[in-house]
């Protein structure tokens, strides 16, 4: 059975059709890509899946449950986590706190227990802190743990964002342009990194990317959107040779290797 199933998904902003009858089926453990020129509606798809917008039409089914109408934090708790096109960390807070907050959906203590520091509160807080530190160690960020996140260099902030997304124990990770603002060498490292987190955390990854080199190298399957509509779907090899894709990208001067 598919992990995530999108059926006839459409979304309008006012009169503007942003996503047009999208269908997708993602199986457990896949690493697939979503590409398309600027304004093609890629991020909107992610926003629909994560519950930021409610789709005008269609259904999104995750592990047999419909996500339509569910609030973003519920969807997060069900096992979908994401990063953002522009970094959206909580800037004034420390790196550790950023990761800690992502455990929010796992908290089961109530307010009284928090005020009185009762055992359940203490136990869960300790667990969250230990797990957060462990994650930071795994990503070699532990030396920044108590640093406000805004003081970190850009690349490190990107990594913190991924750590934060992983902290909520997702089964499906949505990466929105993870390579934005990176140079070719960094992109090479990022490709290995994405492979590594998929294997380490047993994830399914769906990513949006403009860097064709990255998408073509790591994705097992790619979907191409243009003006909200799917214009191509297939393996990197098929996409590379698809004339429609080349046409859609002509104005973009994308390097299709």
């Amino acid at each position: 059975m598919a992990l995530l199933q999108i059926k006839n998904l459409s979304h309008y902003f006012g009169g503007l059709l942003a996503v047009d009858n999208l269908n997708e089926e993602i199986r457990e453990g896949e690493l697939i890509g979503l590409i398309g020129p600027n304004g093609a509606g890629k991020t909107t798809v992610f926003n629909l899946v994560t519950g930021v917008y409610r789709p005008t039409q269609g259904d999104i089914i995750f592990q047999g449950q419909s996500l339509v109408g569910k609030s973003p934090h519920t969807i997060n708790a069900l096992g979908i986590s994401r990063t953002f096109q522009t970094i959206r960390l909580w800037n004034m807070m420390s790196v550790l706190d950023n990761v800690r907050i992502a455990h929010h959906s796992r908290i089961s203590y109530n307010l009284a227990e928090a005020f009185l520091h009762l055992p359940r509160y203490r136990h869960q807080e300790r667990e969250i802190e230990e797990r957060s530190m462990e994650l930071l160690r795994l990503f070699k960020l532990e030396r920044y743990a108590h640093e406000p996140v805004k003081n970190l260099p850009y690349g490190e902030q990107r990594r913190v964002e991924i750590v934060r997304a992983l902290a909520s124990r997702p089964r499906l990770l949505l990466l929105d342009e993870p390579a934005a603002g990176m140079n070719p060498r960094e992109i090479g490292a990022l490709m290995e990194f994405i492979h590594w987190i998929r294997d380490e955390f047993h994830l399914t990854i769906w990513l949006i990317e403009h860097q064709m080199r990255l998408v073509m190298n790591i994705c097992e399957r790619i979907k191409v959107l243009d003006f909200g509509a799917t214009i191509a779907d297939g393996t990197p090899e098929e996409i590379r040779n698809n004339p429609k894709v080349i046409e859609a990208y002509l104005g973009e001067q994308a390097e299709v290797h």
């Binding site: 909580w90 929010h104 928090a114």
Partner: peptide
């Protein structure tokens, strides 16, 4: 508490907080 830090997360970026599992 981790729960209460969600309050600050709302200040810093409410949408990110909601998407990261904070029941805003």
């Amino acid at each position: 508490s981790t729960f209460g830090k969600g309050i600050v997360a709302i200040r810093e970026d409410e949408i990110a907080a909601e998407l990261m599992g904070v029941n805003t």
